[in-house]
Nucleic acid binder design. Structure first.
Lengths: 188, 188, 188, 188
DNA sequence: AATGAATGAGACTTCATTCAT
DNA sequence: TATGAATGAAGTCTCATTCAT
């Protein structure tokens, strides 16, 4: 290999895209992303064939990171309520700590450019969370509702909570707690 | 400036925009919308000063329609659980009956072009629903959580449910019921 | 109609394209053509949907003009040899009088962008010439060769002759005569 | 600079270029040619300084091959009519046997990138054919027409015939014969 | 008021060639 | 010498908005 493709550059592009899209939305120009990444115009296309390709890879990347953050240091020895609580707060902390990532992920999630395949990959990243959820609802009223629906409801609640926390950061923790309790009531 | 002559044309544009945006997203060209509406491209700007203006008006319109649909024929004489159930199913039916409207509304909701003022108006349309919600949570565990958070949670749950119903229409009613019950547990 | 599409502008574009393509070949930029035509960049696409569209229309236009020139003031009362001679010399005169048109037509003729439909239209313009040819070969050795092949041979000979005349204009007439006589021997 | 090491690679590039240009035209990317040749894109420029250089060498190569094919196994002992006939059919067979070579050669022949020097070399390859032609017309009506014009006429006729044979392969031989006879009438 | 042609900035992407490895 | 990533100018086409008619 002459000059290997640089992971640093790829990451610089992804990271620049996250920042720019958070501000400008999906109509952000590839040239703006390249500039923010400190690389020339055409080099972006060495790493991503098309803008849509960049968007899809960014989507999967951010989804993966979010899921990983949610399960970080999960207290496997504790009871399920504690584990869920841990997961809930870690998710919310990630989202409020990296508002650009979350905002960009929200943009990507509704984009026509994200392929079914990428959405599938995005789903895959959530299997760890799904397992927790499965245990949580085991003996509860939702035990025979499709797990995907339960997951979608929980995820939607988390999203709504994050929005609220972002708007009213002074009481972020209180909101997070109230929403978790609500979610737990839903499940059990 | 007096209102332009033809309300028909205005509505034709709004309706065309709903259809086109559902398919092409917010990057739909104004010329495409005009064509779908059967009017010359320049005439669109007689009715809406800018594309952003069109988008904002469409947002408010759709929000209003959705809220109205939710409260249609509300059984005011019945107990609150019955009323909420009614509202929930009417919301979901509207969304599944007019998938283009819902899809376009989802696009608009995340657009940078929608002004705070329009969002405010969108909120206003939901006061009827908020009142129901206020009553529902009155003696329950969420009685001192900000009503806006409760509303956001419910709304997010409804959205997630609609997505699910759309993907699996055969069991739409079952999903709607399961989700309503979940929401009611959250509240009470 | 607000402002009718201007035939002048369309012709200016076609004419500019002829000039530019003669010099730069088919890789001539649409921007260069627009500039030569004295119109802004984007306006070219008001008259021609794509560059390929412009190329196709130009092809048909030039073919038509060439065929018309060949048959101009055809001495219908004279014998067929005289008529053919007239046609031959008029064709060659047109080509040598408008070298840019001919050069551009030559470029277009081998372009991948010219559709079968345009080529068909190009052929149609030559039916008048084909009729002359039909008469000419009537009792000759080529009377049962496909007319299209005879036409292709004659046309190829004319082309080769034009090239030669252009390279050696001092003896243009002599070459034209020699080639006509050769062609006539072929036919009769 | 000594000739680069691998003639195989050079030939692989030339052959790949022939295939790709036949399909995509002269706008074929050097990277596409390299890929078709199974070599890295940068290596192409070890063998050819520029794309134009590659094109010029390919032009001369194909011209040479075509001329060689025309004169292969020429029956020197036979009379001139037989020799010409042989040459004519061999030319046509080569062109119909290697349609990609012929198509690419046609593209190259009209390219602005082919230098006068290359065209000159291309001409040189045809001296053998020219000699045949010289003999053929010796006592005929074209004996004092510039030989180059006669050659151009014959060559144009062959080209037109090949096109026709390609379009209607079922009667290829019949067309080839008819055209040869026509050409012979022109000459004698 | 209504029309639709006109505008030109800017979008994405390609590509011949160079050069670090 | 061989490689293939890097470059950035240039290409085609789109589009919201304006304005002559």
């Amino acid at each position: 290999m002459a000059r290997p493709k640089s992971d640093d550059r790829r990451n610089a592009i992804l990271s620049a895209a996250t920042r720019i899209i958070a501000i400008e939305g999906l109509s952000a120009a590839t040239a703006a992303i390249a500039k923010e990444a400190g690389i020339p115009n055409g080099s972006l296309f060495t790493y991503f064939e098309t803008k849509a390709d960049l968007l899809n890879q960014l989507y999967v990347e951010l989804k993966t990171e979010m899921a990983a953050a949610a399960l970080e240091r999960l207290p496997l020895a504790s009871d399920i309520h504690t584990q869920m609580r841990h997961m809930w707060f870690h998710s919310l902390r990630w989202a409020t700590s990296y508002p650009e990532k979350r905002r960009t992920l929200a943009h990507l999630a509704v984009s026509e450019d994200i392929t079914p395949d990428s959405r599938q990959k995005g789903h895959q990243t959530m299997v760890g969370i799904a397992k927790l959820l499965e245990q949580s609802r085991q003996n509860g009223p939702m035990h025979d509702v499709p797990l995907a629906l339960v997951a979608a409801l929980m995820s939607a609640m988390a999203d709504a909570t994050i929005d609220f926390m972002t708007q009213d950061p002074a009481h972020a923790d209180k909101h997070a707690t109230a929403a978790f309790d609500a979610m737990w009531r839903m499940l059990t």
